[in-house]
Design a protein around this nucleic acid. Structure first.
Length: 270
DNA sequence: GAGTATGTTATATG
DNA sequence: GCATATAACATACT
């Protein structure tokens, strides 16, 4: 048996889906053997030391902050960031190594595998989620952010809206795809300066943001199951805008690809 | 072969 | 210090 814990590139909803699945499948399990297979992906620790730190521990719970996942081992935590191409799997029985296996936890109830072709992912030990968040300077988890909090976070900053939404120090968990979705739903052009957005617009963005993330979690991060009107159902250049049917266009903002409806998301004038 | 990629971080520049 | 731009990381796919 082989269970994949999530689908899609790991942004907040994908990691949250993995968290829920892992909670069901490996809570209470004991780590019999740990294999840290890629030294480059070990964060602030050597593979041997990490393996020793994991062996014998019991998985007491699974936590998440933004795109970061934490296995609570009682006293210490295994931190996992899935990068751009990482995925988590639970195997039972004697499944072979996966093609791009980077971390393997053999448990008394099965095996958890972190597979990652591009090796942008990271793993290591941390004392607590709070320590980790403080050390990285992460903002509040995006699911906990409402209109008031987003306004507060953005008030302290100048600059362009989309790169700020992607900055994990402002809010943790939003990636390129969900930023595009949010801006589309709010009819905001990604290059709009924050200063050009009214407080009520920013508040609305904060409220809508968690709705978008929740909707994706409910859909199991399968974009084809998102409600009508979602950009992510077909986010490709030339596809019809779900609102007005004009062809979607692509542009670069802050070095990242953005997909917008040129009719709905007006260019900032200033 | 060239160009693309949904994440993060370091470095340089104004 | 801040905002912005760029490269780098390593691999797969079109």
């Amino acid at each position: 048996m082989h269970h994949r814990m999530m689908r899609g590139v790991p942004e907040l909803p994908e990691v949250e889906t993995a968290r829920r699945q892992l909670r069901r499948e490996i809570t209470g399990a004991r780590v019999v053997k740990a294999l840290a297979l890629d030294p480059k992906m070990c964060e602030n620790i050597g593979p041997g030391e990490l393996e020793r730190g994991l062996t014998g521990k019991i998985v007491e719970g699974i936590e998440r902050h933004g795109k970061n996942l934490f296995l609570d081992l009682g006293g210490s935590m295994l931190h996992i960031h899935l990068g751009m191409s990482g995925s988590l799997h639970v195997l039972s029985g004697w499944d072979r190594r996966m093609t791009h296996e980077r971390l393997r936890l053999e448990l008394d109830s099965g095996t958890m595998v972190f597979d990652d072709p591009r090796r942008f992912g990271r793993y290591g030990l941390t004392g607590s989620v709070e320590d980790f968040v403080a050390k990285k300077g992460l903002g509040p988890d995006a699911l906990s952010v409402d209109g008031r909090v987003l306004l507060e976070r953005l008030n302290a900053r100048r600059g362009t809206i989309k790169p700020l939404l992607l900055d994990q120090r402002v809010v943790a968990g939003i990636g390129n795809l969900y930023a595009d979705e949010l801006l589309f739903q709010l009819r905001v052009h990604p290059r709009t300066p924050v200063a050009a957005l009214s407080p009520s617009r920013i508040e609305a963005m904060g409220e809508r943001g968690r709705e978008v993330l929740r909707a994706s979690i409910e859909a199991g991060t399968d974009f084809s199951l998102l409600p009508d009107g979602y950009l992510l159902r077909d986010r490709s250049g030339g596809a019809p805008c779900p609102r007005c049917s004009a062809p979607l266009t692509t542009l670069k903002v802050g070095g990242r690809t953005s997909v917008i409806c040129p009719a709905c998301q007006a260019c900032p004038s200033g």
